[in-house]
């Protein structure tokens, strides 16, 4: 195992819980098991690892690659469901009811708002989110506040 592989392995071991959490938050029912998503994310992380120059924090870089991978997997899963004309799967069906309720509402947001809200809930500050999404810090703050208002309304309507 060369240096590059060793460093990559150590990084994954350091962040395995967080990577697993990101995969879990993208539940895609029976289409993709969390472990399959985890494997796919590791593949993409390894593929893009040479491009990681340490300018952003490891955690931020991992989050960005993992999210992009999972968003494209999800798009593919949704397209497949639509072409197969099957009944949409229940994405969130584990025992974390509160988390799942809110995540289901967050899923209905527009893709950029979804990424911003998710990153905020996953502990990233505005500056980090701004870097990830490619907008200004002020824009992140504004979009997050609007998305939260929207979610609140949806939540009240549902209850």
């Amino acid at each position: 195992m060369d240096n590059n592989e060793q460093r990559f392995k150590e990084m994954i071991v350091r962040h395995k819980d967080f990577i697993w959490h990101i995969c879990e938050s993208y539940r895609m029912g029976a289409t993709w098991e969390v472990s399959d998503m985890f494997q796919e994310v590791l593949c993409m992380l390894w593929r893009y690892y040479p491009g990681f120059d340490g300018r952003s924090a490891e955690r931020t870089w991992i989050y960005k690659v993992a999210n992009n991978t999972l968003i494209s997997l999800k798009r593919r899963a949704i397209n497949r469901q639509q072409t197969n004309d099957t009944v949409p799967e229940q994405y969130y069906n584990d025992d974390r009811t509160e988390y799942n309720d809110l995540m289901q509402l967050i899923e209905t947001l527009e893709e950029k708002d979804y990424c911003i809200v998710k990153a905020h809930l996953d502990g990233f500050d505005y500056a980090e989110i701004a870097k990830m999404v490619g907008i200004s810090v002020a824009a992140v703050s504004m979009r997050l506040s609007r998305a939260k208002q929207k979610l609140r309304k949806m939540y009240e309507y549902e209850k």
Binding site: D17, Y99, L102, D122, Y155, E156, K159
Partner: peptide, 21 residues
């Protein structure tokens, strides 16, 4: 309902800390 939403929102913000592979 507002309080309920805020509670859930804050709970969700703690979720990643509890994650375990």
């Amino acid at each position: 309902k507002n309080k309920d939403f805020d509670k859930q929102w804050n709970n969700c913000k703690e979720e990643y800390k509890k994650a375990k592979c």
